[in-house]
Amino acid sequence: MKKQSTPSRETAPAPAAVFGRTTQLDVENPPPDLYGRPQPDRFMRAVTAFGDTYTPAMGRPLLRRSPRLPAPRARAPLSLVVTAHRAVAEGVVELRLADPSGDRLPGWQPGAHLRLTLPSGRERHYSLCGDPADRTSYRIAVRLIADGGGGSREIHQDLHLGARLTVRGPRNGFAFCGEPKLLLLAGGIGITPLLPMAREAQRRGLDWHLVHAGRSEASMPFTEELRALAAMGVPPAGSRGRVTIRTEDAGGVPTAAELLSLARPGSAVYCCGPAPMLAAVQAAFDASPATALHFERFGAAPVLDGRPFTLQLGADGERLPVPADRSALDVLRAARPDLPYSCHQGFCGTCRVQLLAGTPEHRDRRLTAEERASGALLPCVSRAAEGETLVLEV
């Protein structure tokens, strides 16, 4: 009998929700290094020196943020350097990040992500897509969003070998539970957290199948890695193979029902991709043979039960109407493009602003009661009652 589809509490800045069973893996306290620290690497020292000299210092946010309480069990940020920067598909670059002294990096599990502070001060979250067994470097992949907030453009156009980045994590809000039967559904750049899951499923000898959907094969990263992984072992009798590459230019846009029909009875489904894909899979899930759905959303969640209200910048400043179907963050960024942000979903706290007057509806999962009482507000998800005016410190 299929389990009730009830989402679990999302617990990390890069959010994930689960229908059915879920387990949170502990990547905050990896085991100690049993083999000692390696000797400093001459190449890494040279790369780091180059990056420290040529990485530009860029602007600061226009809206001030109050001091925030440290996250529970927080690990000290890492200072890593870019050791590789290469195109892996149309509009997608791969980065490798390493410790400048050659030290081993903290361990991680499939589904984990990093929080990067770029040279401009922008903060962004990216899923790890490399091999957890490789403790010498982290690998991420970034798609260029031409009309986005500038983070992906900075990574594509301005970041260079040797650039030093502040990195927090790894953190895991999309934990891989390792169920015996798995269907992995990736849309575009959503392949990044699912590729390590496929590798882990292959390593464990699980019954898995991965579908990577995208506009064209040229725009989809890591297809050759997926094919090589699929060829490593013999799929179970009667299966469709391990990997399906589905492109819109060759086969059209697959429906969620088509994708979920590939699940074996009792399978767990892991899905990462654009919001429309995720919404369609959620809607079609109950009619599928699968029994658990794990998903990670990248991009803003839709506004639910929104009502129009107003933001005011300072006691006598500009008034900004917020429509029922737009977030306060979107409206703020139209007036203040340098306002920092990251997750769009009330997890990371990057967009935090200070409230001077008004009664907000806090919808985040980051701020404490004390922070809210002192006027902290996350405009990416929080709103106000219809007709209310929230006055912000500028």
Rank of each mutant, 00 (worst) to 15 (best):
I245L: 10
T255L: 10
R242H: 15
S382D: 00
L62N: 14
S120I: 04
R336F: 12
F19C: 12
S288F: 01
R168N: 14
A146P: 12
R86F: 11
P170A: 14
V93Q: 10
N29G: 01
G299D: 05
A46W: 11
I189L: 11
G59H: 07
I145L: 12
G349K: 01
L313A: 00
E200Q: 15
L355C: 04
P235K: 02
L159P: 08
S382Y: 05
S374R: 14
R264M: 08
H362I: 03
R164H: 04
I155V: 14
V234C: 02
A74E: 13
Q4D: 13
F176D: 03
L262W: 10
L332T: 00
N172C: 13
T6E: 10
H362C: 02
E258Y: 02
E200L: 11
I245F: 01
V167S: 01
S219E: 12
D41V: 10
Y270W: 05
D99Q: 05
R240C: 06
A74K: 07
V92G: 03
R65L: 09
D99T: 01
A228C: 13
G205N: 11
D338L: 12
V253Y: 13
G273Q: 06
E371Q: 11
L229S: 07
V81S: 09
P30R: 08
G59E: 12
T310V: 14
D305K: 09
R9F: 15
E217D: 14
L304A: 10
P100G: 03
V391K: 06
D286Q: 11
E386L: 11
V243L: 06
G162H: 09
H294A: 06
A369G: 13
P72R: 06
M197C: 04
Q312D: 09
L390D: 00
T55Q: 14
Y54K: 01
C351Y: 00
L95M: 06
G20M: 12
R60A: 15
L195M: 06
P61L: 03
T6K: 13
Q39C: 09
H125D: 12
A283N: 06
A376D: 10
D134V: 15
R383V: 07
A141F: 04
I189K: 02
R372L: 02
L165H: 01
P221E: 04
Q202V: 06
